[in-house]
């Protein structure tokens, strides 16, 4: 009898929680917009470490990046010595790589975009992907899930145009901080192609930001690529020459 009573209270509590959640549940587009507001900024300057797990060994590269919105970005490799001085410049839909040893600037285009970046599970094309999600996908809230003790909304994004790489995505968004904690990219057939997990969410200059991202190509064997931000500053003053091709040769 007591058991039954207990259960009853439990159920009623559960019900009230669900009703609260569903009441406070915003629509998917609103969530995406809030995520956007949190994650993107006028510009940012950050240093990061990229650890690539190979079949034989792992190695870590460090890089410094300046970026403005999703459109312009400039990256310089700091270590290891072999990659030091290698620079990458992305302007709109174009990408150039500069190699100091040959003093040549090569535009990465066509099939070269499909190559992996420095042997990671990320392709140049993935890097170039700068279209606003809300422009090319239709989002739908499909559920909730706990990830590492955080409550998340699960969004399903379905492509509205044809000329994009991934037909659909799934995103797990922290319900409080509006930070994605997991993302999955799917093929047209529904097969999972890539998964990224985001963690180490910290508050920087008033924003929640995931400092560690693990990318994994799901069809390939291996442990994926770990991308860790070591320092980040938002809304700095970045001189305009940083985003010109001339900067590559300096």
């Amino acid at each position: 009898m007591t058991n039954f009573k207990h259960m009853k209270t439990k159920i009623s509590i559960l019900f009230s929680i669900i009703s609260v959640i569903s009441y406070s549940q915003p629509n998917a587009d609103e969530i995406l917009q809030k995520v956007d507001r949190n994650m993107s900024s006028e510009n940012r300057v950050f240093e990061s470490e990229m650890t690539i797990h190979g079949r034989r060994s792992s190695r870590t590269l460090t890089l410094r990046t300046f970026s403005v919105g999703d459109i312009k970005s400039y990256t310089e490799y700091l270590t290891p010595p072999r990659e030091q001085g290698t620079k990458m410049l992305k302007l709109e839909n174009q990408l150039w790589v500069y190699s100091p040893s040959t003093d040549r600037t090569i535009q990465i285009s066509g099939h070269m975009l499909r190559q992996s970046v420095m042997g990671s599970d990320l392709s140049y094309e993935d890097m170039m992907d700068n279209k606003k999600l809300t422009d090319i996908y239709e989002a739908e809230l499909i559920g909730n899930e706990m990830i590492d003790g955080r409550n998340t909304w699960i969004l399903e994004l379905t492509a509205t145009t044809e000329d994009i790489a991934y037909a659909s995505r799934k995103m797990w968004i922290d319900t409080e901080r509006y930070v994605p904690l997991k993302e999955e990219l799917y093929a047209k057939s529904g097969q999972l192609l890539k998964r990224s997990t985001l963690s180490d969410v910290v508050l920087i200059q008033g924003r929640w930001f995931p400092k560690t991202i693990v990318y994994k190509d799901m069809l390939k064997q291996g442990d994926g690529t770990v991308f860790k931000i070591t320092s980040i500053k938002f809304n700095e003053v970045i001189p305009e020459y940083i985003f010109s091709k001339a900067v590559l040769k300096q």
Binding site: E162, Y166, A167, A187, K188, S189, L193, L219
Partner: peptide, 15 residues
């Protein structure tokens, strides 16, 4: 076995 390809628009597909 899994194969992956891209359609005429460049969209990934795998099966």
């Amino acid at each position: 076995v899994s194969i992956r390809w891209r359609d005429v628009n460049g969209m990934f597909d795998a099966t």
